[in-house]
């Protein structure tokens, strides 16, 4: 497959572009890489205040861990979401941001998108590391799940990358894409059980059935791949249990599907890329 050989050839470039993103992002800021942690911490605190204290979202008890801390419950889903959201939005803009480079040098174009997503993986890994330490402090035991966690992170990266590839090329031809995506991502955020437990959706579906409404709310709700990803992350980190195989399989299919579609669309649409930039 030519994609594999292209990727192999541009390995060195990929590493360097990723390093550029990682190093360049917080250059000349006082806190440097600290910002990559401060941002999610601030979001976590705000959401905890709003949803934990004001709206009083019920906090489920961790199945094996016995945890009942809203911040941790939130963080186990919010950090993967943040990574996904950032990967899609920065990946989408990476071609336009590097227009100057694309116009002057030939290289394997997807490298730019991949490098952007990978650079966010670095931040994501640091965040997850901090989260694991916090979970340990609060009495959860996520360590045995770390190998599987890495696999799921890879799947989530592939899922995000596929979408980023698709949107990056769409954004070159239609600059409106990025604005639509901003709205879409907000919708997606609330359509995924991040700030609330899945239990609330189940309760709602039960109430609807009781009222004689047979709208398949749960089935539709569970079509969202991120719902599956979030469930898997929560199962491992918050509950310390084996995620459902069905969820893992769904994640795998979503990741592969997204990546294949992303690459195919990118390859098909890239021939006039430089002129349209």
């Amino acid at each position: 497959m030519s994609v594999v050989s292209d990727l192999k050839d541009s390995r060195g470039l990929l590493v360097n572009l990723t390093l550029r993103e990682v190093r360049g992002k917080y250059k000349r800021t006082l806190l440097g890489q600290g910002w990559s942690l401060l941002n999610p911490i601030a979001t976590l605190l705000i959401y905890t205040l709003v949803f934990g204290f004001v709206l009083r979202v019920p906090v489920p008890v961790g199945e094996d861990s016995g945890l009942q801390v809203f911040v941790l419950f939130l963080a186990c889903a919010l950090l993967p979401w943040n990574f996904f959201n950032n990967a899609v939005s920065s990946g989408m803009g990476s071609l336009i941001a590097n227009a100057n480079l694309l116009r002057k040098v030939f290289f394997w174009r997807p490298t730019l998108v991949v490098a952007t997503v990978l650079s966010l993986n670095v931040t994501f890994a640091i965040e997850l590391g901090v989260l694991v330490v916090l979970l340990l402090v609060f009495g959860s035991m996520p360590l045995p799940w770390i190998p599987l966690l890495v696999v799921v992170v890879v799947l989530l990266t592939a899922f995000a990358l596929g979408i980023a590839l698709l949107l990056s090329i769409a954004n070159v031809y239609f600059r409106d894409t990025q604005h639509f995506v901003t709205i879409g991502m907000q919708l997606w955020f609330y359509a995924t059980p991040i700030v609330y437990p899945y239990q609330l959706i189940q309760d709602q579906a039960a109430r609807m059935r009781a009222a004689g409404n047979d709208f398949p709310l749960e089935t539709i709700y569970r079509l969202n791949p991120l719902e599956r990803f979030v469930s898997v992350f929560r199962a491992m980190l918050y509950d310390n249990v084996m995620p459902y195989w069905g969820d893992l399989l769904f994640c795998l299919v979503a990741a592969v599907g997204s990546l294949v579609i992303g690459i195919v669309v990118f390859n098909r649409s890239q021939h006039r890329l430089v002129e349209e930039l």
Binding site: V15, N16, L17, L19, R20, R23, K27, L101, K104, F107
Partner: peptide, 18 residues
């Protein structure tokens, strides 16, 4: 493809790999 905030050294490696 030079990144203005990076050093000359880092940019040599970056630009070279590009």
């Amino acid at each position: 493809g030079f990144h203005p905030e990076l050093s000359g050294r880092e940019n040599v490696f970056l630009n070279g790999s590009i």
